[in-house]
């Protein structure tokens, strides 16, 4: 094989990162590309980013698993030994993170990780997913009807041509996700990780505007997406505070998390 052919073959392999991330290579080609991945940093980085994108497609597919599956899995787990922590050989595809160290790791320490943390890049959608999974567990007819109403409201926000998503994160890694439409003045807000409140306290959502008192948007439930209405374009951020049961007229505590709205089209 001439050098040119070899280079050409390599260039061809480089182009397989996207199909690989979608699991769209057939067996032999997959194996060949995984071999290439081990030595090509460009493709390794590419595959990591594209795989994060591909996995977003999974978010729309969740469906309740059959009850019998739970029994079978939990029973099997009782008699299934675990692999020891150091067993990180190359048995799973490299893009299944953690199954194989990145090619570069064995050579020199990197100044910073190759990965954009999933949570940073995609937290808004992930939060939304987490919120809905939680809702699915046990619900009555009444709850279902309320969910359908909320789903309609939410769909309306999502359908707005200018709808955009953003995420805020506090020091402890808890997050607030928002999908907002400035033209509609509406937003879907989800909290994640703030479920450790005492029984007599609630989370209250506030709209922060320049030269104005915080405006209460309502009380938040940790595992339920909240639809906020009446957001004016001057709004600068959303804030969440812990308030006594029933909520307060104005915030009585410092916000536990705050999210700027500029990136979703507010704050003119």
């Amino acid at each position: 094989m001439s050098l040119l052919d070899r280079l050409r073959g390599r260039a061809d392999l480089h182009s397989l990162a996207a199909p690989y991330a979608l699991d769209a290579l057939e067996g032999n080609e997959r194996a060949r590309f995984e071999k290439h991945l081990a030595g090509c940093e460009r493709c390794a980085a590419d595959v990591r980013a594209l795989s994060e994108d591909a996995v977003r497609l999974a978010w729309s597919t969740a469906a309740p698993a059959p009850a019998a599956l739970r029994d079978r899995v939990l029973t099997a787990v009782r008699t299934t030994p675990q692999e020891p922590a150091r067993a990180r050989e190359n048995r799973l595809p490299p893009h299944v993170w953690g199954t194989q160290p990145p090619p570069a790791r064995s050579r020199a320490p990197r100044p910073r990780p190759l990965f954009v943390p999933f949570a940073t890049a995609t937290a808004a959608a992930a939060l939304v997913v987490a919120a809905l999974f939680a809702v699915q567990a046990n619900r009555s007819e009444q709850q279902l009807a309320a969910e359908r109403d909320r789903a309609r409201e939410i769909a309306h926000v999502l359908a707005a041509p200018d709808a955009r998503a953003a995420t805020g994160r506090d020091a402890e890694g808890r997050t607030i996700g928002v999908i907002a439409s400035a033209s509609e003045g509406r937003a879907v807000v989800t909290l994640n990780g703030y479920d450790d409140l005492p029984g007599d306290r609630v989370h209250q959502l506030w709209l922060m505007r320049p030269q104005a008192q915080p405006l209460s948007l309502g009380l938040l439930d940790d595992d339920t997406p909240f639809v906020a209405n009446g957001l004016d374009r001057a709004a600068t951020s959303l804030a969440v505070t812990v308030e006594p049961d029933g909520g307060s007229a104005q915030p009585t505590t410092q916000p536990v998390v705050q999210l700027a709205l500029e990136s979703v089209g507010f704050g003119e």
Binding site: R48, Q82, E83, L92, G98, T99, P113, F118
Partner: peptide, 15 residues
């Protein structure tokens, strides 16, 4: 079986 292979520094668990 393979939970130990998960490396939190390299992406989320859900992913």
């Amino acid at each position: 079986r393979s939970a130990a292979r998960f490396d939190p520094g390299r992406g989320s668990a859900l992913s």
